[in-house]
Design a protein around this nucleic acid. Sequence first.
DNA 1: TTATCGTATTGACATGGATCAAAGCGACCA
DNA 2: TGGTCGCTTTGATCCATGTCAATACGATAA
Lengths: 261, 261
Amino acid sequence: MDQSDQPTERESELELPNKSAVPISLVTIKAACSQCSLHELCLSEGLSKEELAKLDILVGARRKLKRQQSLYRVGDTFEALYAVRTGFFKTDILLEDGRDQVTGFQMAGEILGMDGIGGGAHSCNAVALEDSEVCVIPFSQLEQLSREIQTLQHNFHKVMSRELVRDQGLMMLLGTMRAEERLAAFLLNMSQRFTARGYSAAEFHLRMTREEIGSYLGLKLETVSRAFSRFQEEGLIAVQQKHIRILDGEGLKRLLNHQPR
Amino acid sequence: MDQSDQPTERESELELPNKSAVPISLVTIKAACSQCSLHELCLSEGLSKEELAKLDILVGARRKLKRQQSLYRVGDTFEALYAVRTGFFKTDILLEDGRDQVTGFQMAGEILGMDGIGGGAHSCNAVALEDSEVCVIPFSQLEQLSREIQTLQHNFHKVMSRELVRDQGLMMLLGTMRAEERLAAFLLNMSQRFTARGYSAAEFHLRMTREEIGSYLGLKLETVSRAFSRFQEEGLIAVQQKHIRILDGEGLKRLLNHQPR
DNA sequence: TTATCGTATTGACATGGATCAAAGCGACCA
DNA sequence: TGGTCGCTTTGATCCATGTCAATACGATAA
């Protein structure tokens, strides 16, 4: 089986010394931003050695989650942000009538939980789509430290702002694009994010179901499935369940731009 | 003509001493957060007298915009945030092929420009939908001051976070709701925001066209128009061009929740 | 090996909203 | 006062996607 989406060298850096299964999910090992390979994606970019050391102290613990476990739920008191260390998450909102909307998929180096700052409680659910690990960043301490360290402050602001821009892109997608454009945009986005993490741009394993993709893209799962099949027929991609190989990235990009309107 | 959406007492507080038309749009009068009636909506909530004074110094100038004038455009270098003082704005993104998506409507007390922090340049356009005035908040100075004033720092983080939550709501709307639900949600949201500013909850003047509403809601202008007509037939609202009167707010809310799916 | 369950694919058909087109309405200007 | 222009409303038709249903696939467990 092809494992092109597993960059082994990085993986070793992230490995915990203790591999035995721990029954409690809150592990008290220091996260050590200073050692982390996700620097440039996370909050610690551009920090000096001393500043990194302070951040290390702040990031108190890691938390492991099994597949399908919730990191937080709607209404949970907001206390901390979470940096994805390994694994894959989705965030979603559930309406009373059962409709739900996946609002994002998060992978290593991305920050979860910022939705809770404004109201003191989380406004969405965050669920691990595979066994995962996050760094816990107590928020009041982050605010305190970012009053000391200008670079950290600015990094955090950038992270939030980029999230706003990402949301704008998703609104554009949901508001104006047709089904195949949406899926093409989704695949290209995934590819680009995997690339940024040292994985293959052309071949990857989707951690979410068709239904979750559909929810994210504002489509029904059948429509997602049909679009996948169509892309395959047209030689743009090779699909085998959750395993995707992009054969013609340019073709996908073309789908995005000159659409009939 | 009914002017129920104009709270005259507040208006007087916000009046400039100099009413003559100024040809330049960048006016060098101090904004004076300490005097502003939009406290609780803006960044200055909970600040002490001394802290407010510092914020006053920071907020260097106001800027006036005529209807249809841009506050900033995609690609403009990011330098400042803007607090809407009076008037009404939209933000939108334009695709090469002409499609565009309105990503938000902003009214008094709301902050514009946060999209620019992450990338150093603005990622959307901000356009005044009526003659408007904003407070200019140079961003690096805001960061500096919010390193000094914890409350200011936290207020700013709350503002950004609430924007993220707003975006989530819009994703839910765009991803899962049908046309009439979307319009009902839009009207209730407008009503709620006007109320928070001391205007009538039941009667207001929309500053945007049907096309702009449609773009925001992911619908065509004809669909928006038809939904308005339908609501009127059903006695939920009275529409006269851009003037809206809500006759049955509960009825609108009912539309939102138990939808057939 | 076979049974089961969640997930994915595919087909047939229904429908909500888009599209195209024609009036209607109001504001502004000459 | 009439004319123009931007915006809105309304009707007729079309089509992309949703809905419903059957089947297939793959992983896991017995």
